[in-house]
Amino acid sequence: MQCLKCDKDAVITLQHGALCPSHFLAYFEKKVFKTISKYNLVTSTDRVCVAASGGKDSLTVLYLLKKYAEQHRYPPPQALIINEGIAGYRDGTIKDLELFCNEHNVPLHKKSFKKQFGKDLDEAYPIINSKTKKKPCNICGVWRRYLINKGAKELDATVLATGHNLDDEAQAVMMNIMKANHALLPKLGPKSGTGTHKDFVQRVKPLYFCSEKETRLYTLLKKFKVAYTECPNVVQSYRADVRDVLNQMEEKYPGTKTAVINSFLHISKLYPVQENVNIGSCTICNEPSNKNVCNACTLEGML
């Protein structure tokens, strides 16, 4: 297929037409920059921290937020990575991220489960599981969210950018609807958790309208080094089932995922903005929590 805008061969077919490498790169960057400005994800006074993993999404976010900051003369972003301590997985992606940050001159900060909670995920999991039956991802998610927020605050960041993409968001919308988790729906969106606790750093998702496929193609054409690795703890979760269904629908009916997101954005205007101002602090670590002891400290207490 030929590019919509020139006579070169296309590398991707989008809903509005096919694009060659250079026209795709321009299209992708424009889309991300438009998301940032339209939803006010980053402003001139923000200090941006990118929650990075070394995967395709976080490298793309890091690269484009840096480019955006340079164009607008905003403060440059910093990167934060959490090492969960998962053998055979995280070490590789940390190396990729270190290389990338070195090459692009981005300050990189690291935090680890081991340092914060005394044990790697691999060590903590069997102990906590024997008492609670919790899966690795339950522990990993709680501790990672905790450390990302804490780390961003320590860097004095006003904005925490994540690599969440269109696929992630469409999955989350569908999951919350199918499980009737209405309370969680207002937390989605390009700028989630607006108007929450002062101790939560504002989260933003510059890749909100970019599919996994587009992002992978972007990193490939930009020659970012991204190794394909999968966490050994990945299971065929509810989310993975939703992902598979959405991909089947998308293949048959192109535009399905974008339609899910756009419907959600439309409906979400009907929700009142949540003001979680009454949230308290953990009596052990002082981080924000709606319980006396936060989830992260509760898990740590079992070790």
Binding site: M1, I12, E250
Partner: peptide, 19 residues
Amino acid sequence: INSETVLVVRNNTVLTLDK
């Protein structure tokens, strides 16, 4: 293989589905 889940590459060039 679902075409949404992969990029198809031949000789360092990404191919569209009609190729």
